[in-house]
Design a protein around this nucleic acid. Structure first.
Lengths: 366, 366
DNA sequence: GGGTATTACGCAACAGCGTTGCTATTCTAG
DNA sequence: CTAGAATAGCAACGCTGTTGCGTAATACCC
């Protein structure tokens, strides 16, 4: 059953709202927040007082706009909080340290043994996290996010059957890592982490988006209505296994004519442009189905040919989406490059703690 | 900028939560609500007092569970509120009157002239609404919902370019109808209304769902994370215009091999089973992309062959979705038949006023 | 330089939310 | 008939955002 809302939720909701505005605009003042949120200036003062006490914001001088007492300007302190993100790939563990606004401060890439076990990963994770946490002042490190291939269960924090990874069946990785690292841990699909990275950095105007990732498989991370969308079983985003060619070549998943197999065959014969066009068809399919207005391209197998993929996607979106004026979609490559998954895993932690609240949370938090 | 939350929001949130529970279970008691929501019994008493004052619930006797004072049982009064829903199709206007729990009480079907104008529709609407409103006690009729083909703008209440309807470009239908009818009006795509009907009737466990509608075109209504998902431009659900056959036959939309054209060609040659199999491929595609756990089939061109479509979809879901135990999806036909769109339009009105709150609303409401 | 209008800010009192403490009610069990 | 137990509700409380109003700081006018 859903949880009810109380005064703590109310307070946290409004605090998070102000943090979101501060994050987007960098500096802010009382009157602007009041006008934008509908809060009274007095209420904004109370919110700002709480954020000052938490060390998240600080005064940043005054602004003289004309007659009257000058406006006090505040700014978010990016280094007031840190988070660590992990991207677990088939042969490497990529770790990043980010600050509160989603800037990547340090990156560590560690090789993982073939068919690595949970123990292998936990060891590598512990070592890397210790290294990255070294530079953070005590209490400023919020937690660790882990992004990896599914299927997995985000709510339970359990890896169900990570694709092409032996030793990874029903592993409660979130709780194992939380115990080993001694701090909060989140577990999510790589693609969902990736789209969270874009969303956290772009702010609240980035409400409906998809991140397409081509990297040993083709997946998509969904950001719908202002928050990550994972589906009923944390299994949304199996974008590569949508059939685009009835009776086409057999895919590893068992179906025929999946976008992924058609794409991979084009790539295998060296025809990047054809592969990009196939992906572009899938992108337009997704736009038709869920009508997002931001498409972000990413992944180690895509970025080396970013121009080809971006060009094909842009052309397809322009040509094939009914070109009504108000029906626009922006297509870009990720601003974070190969760090996007790890950085997004970190930002899932930040988003959990400081992001806009959706519905009342079950667990209490500071 | 997002709106802040205040005490009114807090109250409405918890009131709506209790209404949702009452709607699902019919009868309820203080202790069960308290346990499920995390509210104290005292807080639940206050909520119930407000709902009693609003006339939404009434005492329904007591339950003796053993020692101690018996529990007071309450029940939702289905007839305490009504809503009217309109399904605007190409040649007909279908109107339904529903009660608070989503039961269809009366249905009126009115023919519409070919290439009907906004004025035609408003006249027919006013007459039908007057007839249906006649049986409702004053103050119990919440409003009117209108479901029709897109593209349209739900937030603005404007019909942009209704497909295959002349005279319907940038028509502010919501405000026109609200003025004419003298009550609140909502405007939404037919498919979104349809899935809202299922969601309202099934309760809060129905969180992630898609309604597939085959009726002069193929569309889908999305219910994601417990609320309707309309996309960035109210254009989500153009399910029929997803390419399933690269270089296939040319579709009216300009692309090649859209699900809709492939499906329609199969139907045109009388091969319902083949058409159903094509649709089933699209259903599995959607499951892969957004991982819903409920699929509802509807539409005037589907329901006469419900068995074929349902069978094909069930077979495809069972055979083609990776059959992990925890990855299940239910496939059914709509329980409302041809009334589903009109009924859903009515339930959008109920959902707006009495459904679970998501984020703080902009406009104040009673 | 001094007065005044203007804008910003915060203390204090307030209404309303869920919470807590406690009492009254109403049942079963003996 | 009494004791025990569970429910219901009144009253006080802490906290939220809100309102009223006094104070501070500036530009502008004379």
């Amino acid at each position: 059953m859903e949880k009810a809302a109380d005064l703590d939720y109310l307070r946290d909701y409004n605090d998070a709202l102000v943090v979101a505005i501060a994050r987007r605009s960098g500096v802010f003042d009382r009157a602007t927040i009041a006008a934008g949120t509908g809060l009274t200036p007095q209420a904004v003062s109370k919110v700002v007082a709480r954020l000052l006490a938490a060390g998240l914001v600080e005064p940043d001088g005054v602004r003289r706009t004309g007659v009257g007492k000058p406006t006090t300007v505040y700014r978010l302190i990016p280094t007031s909080r840190y988070a660590i993100g992990a991207h677990v790939a088939r042969r490497t563990l990529r770790l990043v340290l980010t600050d509160l606004v989603g800037e990547v401060l340090r990156t560590i890439v560690t090789p993982l043994p073939e068919d690595f076990t949970p123990q292998h990963l936990l060891d590598a994770l512990a070592e890397g996290v210790a290294t990255l946490a070294d530079g953070c002042r005590a209490g400023r490190l919020v937690g660790v996010g882990i992004g990896m291939v599914g299927p997995l269960d985000h709510a339970e924090g359990v890896v169900r059957d990570a694709h092409r990874l032996r030793h990874w069946h029903d592993v409660p990785l979130r709780d194992l890592a939380a115990e080993r690292l001694g701090m909060p841990v989140l577990l999510d699909k790589d693609v969902t982490a990736g789209v969270t990275a874009e969303a956290w950095r772009r702010g609240t105007t980035f409400r409906d988006a998809v991140l397409i990732m081509v990297e040993s498989g083709i997946g998509s991370g969904l950001w719908l209505g202002g928050s990550a969308y994972r589906g009923a079983h944390t299994n949304a985003g199996e974008f590569g296994h949508m059939v685009v060619q009835l009776d086409g070549p057999r895919c590893v998943c068992g179906r025929r004519g999946c976008l992924e197999i058609v794409h991979d065959q084009a790539r295998a014969r060296g025809d990047v442009d054809a592969a990009a066009r196939v992906l572009a068809v899938g992108v337009v399919n997704l736009l038709q189905a869920i009508d997002v207005d931001h498409v972000v391209l990413a992944g180690a197998d895509l970025l080396p040919h970013a121009d080809a993929y971006l060009g094909a996607a842009l052309a397809a979106v322009r040509a094939e989406v009914p070109r009504v004026d108000w029906l626009t979609a922006e297509v870009t490559t990720s601003s974070l490059g190969t760090d996007v998954i790890a950085a997004g895993a970190a930002m899932e932690v930040l988003n959990e703690e400081y992001g806009p609240l959706t519905s009342p949370r079950t667990a209490a938090h500071a």
